[in-house]
């Protein structure tokens, strides 16, 4: 139960994606006061960027960090740089190998929440502005990103249960979701049989894994979203982001709100128009509400 937001600037460049998403999420924070999260796409870095959720208490944190170091060593990955902030531990690593095997092993022993060369997922308990003051989200520049505010209904309030979710084993993919997947267990068992593991009981994680699985098979994002609408039961509006695209899918019952606004320069999508209007204060914008059971994707120029 949540609010979602996404923005993509069509031209390459250093756009204020952090500030933009903070504004949009602050606009719909009433939909989810428990936790907030961002998936931000900045410059393409040489090293693989990993972000973990670690305990905030010093001793436990050190233990978690040491554990991560030994995990990485096991896979021959070397740490180039590290940063510890809020509930997270972020590192840049040199890694060449099978990412799925690598992350699967790591995820069994540590709370890995973001994997990619351009993607960084920042999420924690608290509001958009609270996250900004801890993680300086507002300073992040890039081309696109998605964000989420969460009101926990069925799973616990913990940073790792916050959105966005990265798509396990598939770098630079993230999703945010508003709604409820009612065939969660059926779909989860189906994916578990295919070798995927789940780290929360959050149905949004399922959406991420589902999409990743399809993308891994080489399907286009458009096609993946189309099959998602057919395969997933329930009420949902979700956004997905890849290194160059964002897209949405909306369930057949149109039970979860979503509006979008597109200009020549950008596309912005949010649960409520009040979030879009934050980007254009004092103006009336020609937003549209996608029809039930539809999807669409947008790409940035490369």
């Amino acid at each position: 139960m949540c609010g979602i937001a996404g923005v993509l600037y069509k031209q390459a460049g250093d756009h204020e994606i952090g500030k933009t998403l903070i504004e949009m999420l602050d606009g719909c924070q009433h939909r989810g006061p428990d936790s907030t999260g961002f998936a931000l796409y900045g410059e393409d870095k040489d090293q693989l960027q990993l972000r973990f959720i670690v305990p905030t208490e010093t001793q436990a944190r050190q233990k978690a960090v040491d554990n991560i170091a030994s995990l990485l060593a096991r896979h021959g990955a070397t740490i180039e740089s590290e940063q510890s902030v809020g509930c997270s531990y972020q590192i840049a690593v040199n890694f060449e190998g099978d990412l799925l095997r690598f992350t699967k092993d790591i995820e069994e022993h540590a709370k890995l929440v973001s994997v990619g060369h351009t993607l960084d997922i920042i999420k924690d308990d608290g509001t958009a502005h609270e996250l900004d003051s801890t993680y300086q989200v507002g300073e992040v520049k890039g081309t696109h990103g998605i964000g989420h505010v969460r009101l926990a209904t069925e799973s616990a309030v913990r940073p790792e249960a916050a959105h966005p979710f990265w798509a396990t084993g598939f770098e630079d993919i993230a999703i945010v979701h508003n709604g409820q997947i009612t065939n969660y267990w059926k779909m989860r068992r189906r994916l578990e049989r295919r070798g995927f593991t789940f780290h929360t009981d959050n149905d949004s994680e399922l959406v991420a894994v589902y999409l990743a699985d399809k993308l891994k098979q080489g399907e286009t994002l458009d096609h993946v979203l189309e099959t998602a609408i057919a395969d997933l039961d329930g009420t949902f509006s979700f956004l997905v982001s890849t290194p160059n695209e964002i897209g949405y899918a909306k369930d057949n019952l149109a039970a979860k709100p979503m509006v979008l606004y597109e200009t020549d320069d950008m596309i912005a999508i949010a649960s409520e128009e009040v979030s879009l209007n934050r980007l254009f204060p004092g103006q009336s914008i020609n937003s549209t509400e996608p029809a039930p059971g539809t999807f669409q994707t947008w790409s940035r120029s490369i």
Binding site: M1, C2, G3, H30, R31, G32, L151, T153, N178, G179, Q180, T235, A255, K256, P257, S271
Partner: peptide, 11 residues
């Protein structure tokens, strides 16, 4: 249709 909509209804 969800806890999020209910927030606005309460208001």
């Amino acid at each position: 249709l969800g806890a999020d909509d209910l927030v606005i209804k309460v208001e």
